[in-house]
Every structure is written in structure tokens, then in C-alpha cells.
């Protein structure tokens, strides 16, 4: 066991700008929330060691920019993902409506071998805001959408208060692991597309 290479699980967090992707990642990995995070430009990732049944894994969590205009960068970052986390803000309807776009965009760009069964997890974030009074997307509505997309696991979270964040990421890690072939690390596509350099 000891000689075995530690497995890398790659997770991508997607969702509209400002829904709290960076905040969620930092809450989970560093256990802190700051009002001073900057809007994400490009992409970044954090890693965290996780353990399941005596085996250690490295969870590599990718945080990308939420603005649609930057989506074309995705191809460089999505490849080889083991799980995709879709985040929306329960107080912003548009961010929920966009989940479908994010999901489809991901499937196109990451081109997983088995798109039907690729693991997603949905997080409804910022449930703390205004004691829940400014909420516009109900839990029922969210769960219905998740059910319609092949029973995507759903969590309601608050990155600010750390509510439900650990539970959500535990589920994310488990789903990522399920996606990994048992023996080796999943084969990552070898070459990246870059139109200017292909000629």
C-alpha cells in the first residue's frame, strides 16, 4: 500500500461570477472566509489531502472565473476532471438558471468518456444571507432540477459561516473517486487545443 502512488482527484468548481466559488474553496481547504477575496481572473487551484478507508488522496480543487466571457479558457483547465461542482447563489435566480449552461459547457469542453454518468454535485450557496429572507430559489426547485439531470447530489451551503461545506466536499471527493479507474490515474488527454499553434 505504502508504495502506491497517491491518487490525484481533480475537481472543477463552476458557476456564475460572485456565487461564492472562491469562498467555498477557501472555506473548505483553509477554513476561513474573507470579504477581501478578489474576483478570480484566469484560474487557480488549491489542494487538500483526504482519506477514505485507509487510503490517502490529493484533492485538487480548481477555481475558475465565473464570467461567461472567459469560458473559452475552460478547455485548458477542465481536462482530466474527476468531478464537477456547480454552484449557484440561492438569492440570485439567474445563477440558478445558468446551471444548465455550465453543465453543458463543461461536458463539451472536458469531453469526459462517459458524459451520461460523469459525476456532478450542485451547491446552493449563501443560504445565510438575510436569514434566508432574500432567497429566490427554493430547495425544492433546486432538487427537482438535480433529479432531472440524473440525480445529482445537492447541498445547501454558506461559505461565510462554513455551513455544510465539509459535508458537500466529502460527497464531492467520493464522487470524484468513483469516477477514477481503480488501478491508475485516469489518462489525461495528451495535447491541448490551441488553434494558433496547431499549424
Amino acid at each position: 500500500m505504502a508504495s502506491r502512488r497517491r491518487m490525484l482527484l481533480k475537481v472543477i468548481i463552476l458557476g456564475d461570477s460572485g456565487v461564492g466559488k472562491t469562498s467555498l474553496m477557501n472555506q473548505y481547504v483553509n477554513r476561513k472566509f474573507s470579504n477581501q477575496y478578489k474576483a478570480t481572473i484566469g484560474a487557480d487551484f488549491l489542494t487538500k489531502e483526504v482519506q477514505f478507508e485507509d487510503r490517502l488522496f490529493t484533492l485538487q480543487i480548481w477555481d475558475t472565473a465565473g464570467q461567461e466571457r472567459f469560458q473559452s479558457l475552460g478547455v485548458a483547465f477542465y481536462r482530466g476532471a474527476d468531478c464537477c461542482v456547480l454552484v449557484y447563489d440561492v438569492n440570485v435566480m439567474k445563477s440558478f438558471d445558468n446551471l444548465n449552461n455550465w453543465r453543458e459547457e463543461f461536458l463539451i469542453q472536458a469531453a469526459p468518456s462517459d458524459p451520461e454518468n460523469f459525476p456532478f454535485v450542485v451547491l446552493g450557496n449563501k443560504v445565510d444571507v438575510d436569514g434566508g429572507n432574500s432567497r429566490v430559489v427554493s430547495e425544492k426547485k433546486a432538487k427537482a432540477w438535480c433529479a432531472s439531470k440524473g440525480n445529482i447530489p445537492y447541498f445547501e451551503t454558506s461559505a461565510k459561516e462554513g455551513f455544510n461545506v465539509d459535508a458537500a466536499f466529502e460527497c464531492i471527493a467520493k464522487n470524484a473517486l468513483k469516477n477514477e479507474p481503480e488501478e491508475e490515474m485516469g489518462a489525461k488527454p495528451a495535447a491541448m487545443d490551441f488553434p494558433y499553434l496547431s499549424s
Binding site: I41, G42, F77, M192
Partner: peptide
């Protein structure tokens, strides 16, 4: 090493 897209310099250039 599959780095020719230079996306790692994206932030430098964008802003």
C-alpha cells in the same frame, strides 16, 4: 509539457 497555450500568463496580460 503542454504549456504552449500560455494560459498561465493570462492574468498578467489581461490586467
Amino acid at each position: 509539457n503542454d504549456c504552449l497555450n500560455y494560459f498561465f500568463c493570462f492574468r498578467w496580460i489581461l490586467i
